[in-house]
Design a binder for these strands. Structure first.
Lengths: 341, 341
DNA sequence: TCAACCAGTGCAATCGATTACATACTCGCA
DNA sequence: TGCGAGTATGTAATCGATTGCACTGGTTGA
């Protein structure tokens, strides 16, 4: 804050009314007569007055901010989501704090601490790995309903969740490969214990079984959503005696690593092996080959989470935005084709 | 804010002292006798007291937050920078607001508005395209020294700047290609008018001239840092009668688009054409081929900008962190080799 | 012995808004 | 005519901290 900004007192003086009236003009115009209202609005304009958010927040016992916990800002997947979130909060007077939980790991008490310090009114967690302790502290504080999980979530939590339909995504991927003629389909998973890993893997396994496709234990390859894990998976596949003809990856980044690794090992994609990703990040259409993948509607995910949280915060108690699953789409590009005979 | 959090009043009562004393224990411990201090600290612990930042900020006439203006959060380049920034602010009690100036374009008055509303104490702008009007309004407010430009900047502005040594980067890239034996070197620029475009292009042109390499006007291809513009550049190159043997791209993303476009057109990288990028984003080492590029130290850039701004905000007036240029490095990978004879 | 000084602490104003309650005035109706 | 209801506005408390100023009691030096 700089300079002598006009305060509500200044405006009140100029308009020859009390500060209460000025305040009402701003937040509850109907309570004020039209004549007075116009006088006040004119004074506000003349003074270049703007509400001081800090004072307002103090009086109203709120923080005026929400925190977004992102596992890794470097992963392009999250950008579209953040855009959706800020779109969802546009028009509200909440500020959006963003923190990278990998670059700046949170202490167990950090999240609840933000609430206690009066720094935030709510949070959106894109990180399902928040420690149980941290979450319990928040629950004890009574803010469980103001922590919306987005994309990832924690099992058994009482926190609202917005996520994509991961099982459906896996089903679409396997269905696509099956329709192309693939029978031997492998999967590179996400990190152990991750809820997305579980949902996508189980969706994949279920669909494979439903279609009567063969399953080998080593066709489920452990990954962690990273480029590197895709590379590692490529090495594993190159060494297999009975190689799959197609691989469904738990993330686009994994698919990139995988394709790069396969190429180095002398296998071409899609001629020798088809690859399907998950997410549809911007890069995917420009990769060589352009990646067939499952699109998550990141803007929508973000927006919904924002709306859900906003609903909790402004709690007209009735109109709840419900926790929800967002649909996914299969995007067919160049990294899949019928298996060579 | 939730529940009855203990206030400074509660602590004062428990410790049988005045609120002034409690406040002093927290911010100026030396003023308080050791006996009293311990009593107060004990009371603070017992009450689970935490300073209410909003009240503190109101009283101290500050916002307790800084704004980071990112052109496009989706560009992986920015993530490392953000990590550096938040590292730089760690330990301070400033909150970090992040906004995407593409997803949520700022009105001319928005930035100065943030200051006027008491929402922020300072800003870091990664976006050199802020409108002159917007910047003038900030300058008029007297906050010019609290807006640090990072990576990009505006000409003729009185704003502090932290940036990479772009000219040196271009020199390194051309030098590398020259050393490999390339003589016909093209350049895909950034968007028109962008300061980085200018610095990198001029660095490239100067170095090419210094080395006595041939220059053709159509070897300077207009781009805009995007994947798409890389693709477009590939088409241009494929249509050339006198093709360059190497291309220096103004960004890694451009290089990806270019390589993908060249491959589609039947040219291999690096066998037929060598490609150098700029930035060294995470992806670059996993692209096929792994990308030779100019690394910017993103963590350091972010950290320096944060320190510079923090210095302005806490202004012990003496110890200024100076605006600075950060060094860059050439990272040689697989996308460059000697030209085929 | 007394003034000057210092360390340690409290009182109360202050930051800039919101809002419960009180007040004043105008109608409408019995 | 008088009273209750309704409308428009003002008064002042309040949110939870920080800090200038005043006060107290003890030490020091002349």
């Amino acid at each position: 804050m700089i300079q002598k900004t006009a305060t509500i007192q200044d405006v009140a003086r100029m308009a020859q009314v009390s500060t209460a009236t000025v305040s009402r003009v701003l937040s509850n115009p109907d309570l004020v007569s039209e004549r007075t209202r116009n006088t006040v609005l004119e004074a506000i304009r003349a003074a270049g007055y703007r509400v001081n958010q800090t004072a307002r927040n103090l009086r109203m016992k709120r923080a005026g901010a929400v925190l977004v916990l992102v596992p890794n800002l470097g992963k392009p997947f999250y950008s579209g989501i953040l855009a959706g979130i800020s779109e969802g909060f546009a028009g509200s007077d909440y500020a959006i704090l963003i923190t990278d939980t990998e670059a700046q790991p949170l202490q167990d008490s950090a999240l609840s601490g933000y609430f206690l310090d009066g720094r935030i009114d709510g949070a959106i967690a894109l990180d399902g790995r928040l420690s149980p302790d941290a979450l319990r502290q928040c629950a004890d504080l009574g803010v469980a309903n103001r922590i919306v999980f987005l994309c990832e979530w924690v099992e058994g939590g009482k926190f609202p969740v917005i996520s994509s339909d991961n099982v459906e995504g896996a089903r679409l991927a396997i269905g696509h490969l099956h329709a192309l003629g693939h029978r031997k389909i492998a999967h590179v998973t996400g990190p152990d214990g991750n809820v997305l890993t579980i949902a996508r893997r189980e969706g994949m396994v279920a669909e494979r079984a439903r279609l009567g496709l063969p399953a080998r234990p080593d066709w489920i390859i452990r990954g962690d959503f990273s480029l590197e894990s895709g590379r590692d998976a490529a090495r594993r596949i190159l060494n297999m005696s009975d190689r799959p003809t197609a691989v469904f990856c738990s993330a686009d980044m994994v698919a990139f690593g995988l394709i790069s690794g396969l190429l180095e090992g002398g296998l071409r994609v899609p001629e020798d092996i088809s690859v399907v990703g998950f997410d549809d990040i911007e890069m995917s259409q420009f990769y060589v080959p352009a990646l067939t993948t499952i699109r998550q509607d990141r803007a929508l995910l973000g927006r919904r989470a924002a709306e859900l949280l906003l609903g909790e915060l402004t709690k007209s108690s009735s109109e709840d935005v419900q926790p929800a699953q967002i649909g996914v789409d299969l995007i067919v590009r160049a990294s899949t084709q019928a298996p060579s005979p």
